[in-house]
């Protein structure tokens, strides 16, 4: 049974600082595992989640350029950290600091992806929100999804180039500046 798409509300969900939300997907991004924290915070049942694409919990406030960066990075074999606003089953939202890594078999062949998500500091969310809003506004100016994500990805590159930084350095500058509890 596929659950209906949730209508976003301004209600926020949260989880404990000691918890991590864990999920695994196959190479297509379809969920193969969700831990109890994921089930509880997302508001879906495990049965509803498994086999569904991870984009089930994608929030409309999230710019697609971030997910493109995320997929490009993990598909090239690297790890990535990203602040992500997720959509729960009841339309409420919850922010996470996601760490996504590839899983490979004994021969180094990728078999899927793994994501650990931690509770981010409000100050870190305030630091990334304006950047995401900028990218989202760019995406909304384009009629098709592909053109929108192309344009916002170019904007993100330009924005990083202007600051003489990379996505990796930028996200770590936010983590190291605001996630004091991360250390």
């Amino acid at each position: 049974m596929r659950p209906p798409a949730a209508r976003p509300t301004s209600q926020e969900r949260t989880f404990a600082r000691e918890e991590i939300i864990v999920s695994k997907t196959d190479l297509r991004g379809h969920l193969t595992y969700a831990n109890d924290v994921f089930v509880r915070v997302s508001g879906y049942t495990r049965r509803e989640l498994l086999g569904r694409p991870h984009s089930l919990i994608r929030h409309p406030d999230m710019p697609r350029a971030v997910f493109r960066t995320l997929w490009d990075t993990v598909q090239s074999g690297d790890e990535i950290f990203a602040y992500v606003k997720n959509l729960a089953a009841d339309g409420s939202f919850y922010w996470v600091l996601a760490h996504v890594t590839p899983s490979t078999d004994a021969h180094g062949v990728p078999v899927g992806y793994h994501s650990n998500r931690r509770l981010p500091e409000p100050a870190a969310i305030r630091a990334v929100e304006p950047v995401y809003a900028l990218l989202l506004a760019e995406e909304q100016r384009h009629p098709t999804g592909n053109a929108a994500v192309d344009a916002s990805s170019a904007l993100l590159r330009d924005w990083l180039d202007e600051r003489r930084t990379t996505y990796d350095e930028w996200v770590w500058s936010v983590i190291n500046a605001h996630e004091g509890g991360a250390r």
Binding site: G77, D78, E79, H99, S103, D105, V111
Partner: peptide
Amino acid sequence: LRRSGTVTVVD
């Protein structure tokens, strides 16, 4: 670099 953060699955 490509291997950073990956976990190898034995079986």
